[in-house]
Amino acid sequence: MSLIGEPEWAPPGVDPAQPSVARVHDALLGGMENFAADRSVARKLKDAVPEVVDLVWCNRAFIGRVVDFLIRETGVRQIIDLGSGLPTVENTHEVAQFADPRSRVVYVDIDPMVEPHARAILSNNPNAAAITADARDVAAVLGHPTLTRMIDLSQPTALLVIGLLHLFPDRDDPHGLVRRYMSALPSGSYLAASNMLASPSPKAQALETMLQATMGTGYFRDRPSIVAYFDGLVLVEPGVVHFPEWHPDERLPGPLAPWEELLLGGVARKP
């Protein structure tokens, strides 16, 4: 984002020397909305787990299939995307509005770079918006004037919490956070959630160690803990599974690659 030797420009409130999850993710996807500090973290992650780029694209593909399912199969026409990150390819609103142009999407992210970049992309789209907010502050998110203008919280709503919950330590009570959001949504709403899966796999341990060393975050959890995000809800088949196993576009060719086993998630309906 700058010429060699020149300081990198950053919008007000953004410290380019401090890497952010959203910008590191953008760097891994080959985006341009990141700084040297973010690219340095991305390189370290790739050195630790070379397949991490495949992993983030697998995450994007999962989101796309989930959103397409929600719009085409459930009747839901409004989505709140928590921890959405910087705009990239096959964004949630693009997938949703391809299935039904009436679909409304609100992106939520704590990184102050997300909202202005999303606003530029969404300037001619009356059914999509972005807000800057901490997903852990449920009242601030659901009470934000942009969200309440876009989303009718009395109607079924899909909440996407994909690629976010593993950023929260247990002391932040991620399970309670999910419950608070879902308790605020009406019957017929949906939750799509995921978490990095704890395992003895060297890939899992290397990635978790590097995330915590470079970003100060990254909390892998076991399967029962991930399934517990959906307590009180009705899981959509095939339940909580590895991303490639959830409504694959094509028949799975064989066993999952080790890095594909790091991602676990699912979709469920509020009865």
Rank of each mutant, 00 (worst) to 15 (best):
V241P: 00
G163A: 06
G216W: 12
P12E: 02
S2Y: 02
L147V: 00
D137Y: 15
G239Y: 11
T214N: 14
G5Q: 11
V89C: 01
T132H: 13
M196L: 06
V52L: 01
V56E: 01
V21E: 06
E94D: 14
R223K: 10
A48R: 01
V41L: 09
E94N: 14
V105Q: 08
A128E: 07
G232M: 14
S123R: 12
G266H: 14
E73K: 13
G163V: 01
V241D: 03
S103A: 15
D15W: 15
L185S: 09
T92G: 14
L55C: 09
D172F: 05
D137L: 10
R223M: 01
V95T: 09
G232F: 09
P255M: 15
A213D: 09
E51N: 05
S225G: 14
Y229P: 07
D68A: 09
R43G: 14
N195F: 06
L233C: 04
L82H: 07
L207A: 10
D172V: 03
A204P: 10
F230S: 00
A61K: 00
F220G: 08
S199K: 15
D38G: 01
F220D: 05
F168T: 03
A99S: 11
A120T: 08
V24E: 07
S84A: 15
T146S: 10
R77T: 05
G75A: 15
M182N: 08
K203R: 11
V267A: 14
R43N: 14
T92C: 11
P174I: 13
M150R: 15
E260W: 03
L45M: 09
W259S: 09
F35K: 06
I4T: 03
L86Y: 08
M196D: 08
E94S: 13
A198E: 08
L207R: 15
L55R: 12
E250N: 09
S103V: 11
P238S: 04
S187T: 01
L165Q: 12
D134G: 12
W9V: 08
S84I: 15
P19N: 02
W57Q: 03
L3Q: 02
L262A: 07
R65E: 14
E51Q: 04
A118P: 12
G31H: 06
Y107M: 00
S183Q: 04
Q97S: 14
K44Y: 12
A129Q: 03
S2C: 00
I71H: 13
G265H: 07
G188E: 01
F62V: 04
I79N: 14
L165R: 11
V141Y: 03
F35M: 07
I162Y: 07
Q212E: 11
L28W: 08
V236I: 01
F69Q: 13
A193C: 01
R221C: 00
E90D: 15
L45N: 09
N127V: 07
R102Q: 06
Q155R: 06
L256Q: 05
T132L: 10
S123V: 10
F220Y: 12
G232R: 11
